[in-house]
Every structure is written in C-alpha cells, then in structure tokens.
Amino acid sequence: MSTNEKTIEIEVLRYRPEQDAAPFPQTYVVPYSDDMSVLQGLQYIKDQLDGTLSFRWSCRQAICGSCGVMIDGIPKLSCKSFLRDYAGKGRVRVEALANFPIERDLVIVMDSFVEKLESIKPYIIPKEPRPLSAGEYLQTPAQLDAYAQYSSCINCLLCYAACPQVGLSPDFVGPAALALLFRYNSDSRDGGAAQRMPVVGAESGAFHCTAVGYCSEVCPKGVDPASAVNQAKGASVREYFMGFLGKGGGK
C-alpha cells in the first residue's frame, strides 16, 4: 500500500450469534479508488483484513438483489453505492437491513418475506387452460404498461427496511409483495385476481400502509410500490362493496 493511497473508514455492524451477546460496530480502514463500490469495500475487508465478516452478494450489478444493507442509515444496494460518495466524511457506516432479524453480521433472516411472497402467488394464473398450439399471448403496449414497472422488482428488500409499517407490524405483507401482487393482477394474461385479493383485504394487507412513500424512494429499480399498494387499496374497496351487491371477487 503506497502512502498516498486514499483510505476510508468502514464501520460495519458485526454480530456472530455464537460469541456476541449483541450486535456491535467494528471499524476497518480500507484503501479505495473512485470506482470502488461499498460492496467492494466489504470484499476488501473479507479478503485482506478480516475473513470472519459475513455478507450476501452475487451479481455486483444491481440485478440479483442480494447485497441490500443500511448505508449511513439508508437502505441501499452496496454494489450500487460508491465509497467516493462518503469520502467527504472519511467514514461510512454499514449495517444489516432494518426491520429484519440478523442472522450474522450483514446477513438478515428473510424467511418472513419468502412466506409473504409465496402468499401473493407471484406467477401468472391463466384465465383458462391454454394449449401450446394457441400460440403466444399478445399484449398491446398499454396492457404492458399496466404492469411493466412493477415487474422490475428484484426482491432486494430495501423497501421493507424503509417501511415504518413493516417495522411496527411484522405481519404486514409489505411493499414489494403487494407491488408484485398488483403486477400480476394488472397483467392481461392473468386470471388469478380473485385468489390474490384476500391478501390485500386481510388485516395484514394493504390497509396497513399509511402512504409514507419511502419504499418508492429507496427502490433501486425504479419500481413505485407505494403507488401499487394504494391502487390495491382502491381495488380492495371496490371488491369489498361489490361483495355486498353479490358481485364479489375479480378485479
């Protein structure tokens, strides 16, 4: 390491359940260049300074959604955040995503999210059986626009770390799952809305949302879960009152 190499202090929240009673911060001094992401800083620590540090990562290009962490208290993908942006202060704080139990260091337990994701049936449920010979589904640009942005979700859970309601009510099905629910309900190929609407209208459903909107701000893929959740509320209200008229179910 040359003496004029730039360095930054990375403060990492450590927690190794077999030896630590509680999470605690540990600071590492890491040499960096302008093109280094926070993820690369963590990788430097693991490779050069402290092999016991645990964190999730895979693609390094904001596609896999594995490397979400709190960076200076804000949910971000560590691969999409750069050390140079924190150089002014000379230090950056990296912690496990908020609102989830910590499994180890920066690794969270995401079982609750996987259950919620399964509950919304995140796949196209065809309206009727369709033989291969019927060919591909055709969609107009308008039909594609109805759901396209919501299909960009990579399940990185930044929106769950951002959402105050997820923190207050762990049962809340949450922004990403509701955005994906809305994505499938809005797809012209899909006929499963009636199966998904009970998730929206349940006590753990969309009405937990108080329209804070921070979920949409932190999304690294430009998805707007707040909009999806609030449109889902509208759909649920229509479904609720149509139910009194004997026209329940559907969109």
Partner: peptide, 18 residues
C-alpha cells in the same frame, strides 16, 4: 385466526377517509 386470513374492515373507513 392469523391476520392473513381475517378480513379487514378497513375498506369502510378508507373509503370515508378517501
């Protein structure tokens, strides 16, 4: 019953709120 299966009465209040 778990919150996932109880229907929320919220549509009434949310509609009035809206």
């Amino acid at each position: 019953r778990p919150a996932q299966t109880r229907r929320s009465p919220e549509p009434i209040f949310w509609a009035l709120f809206g």
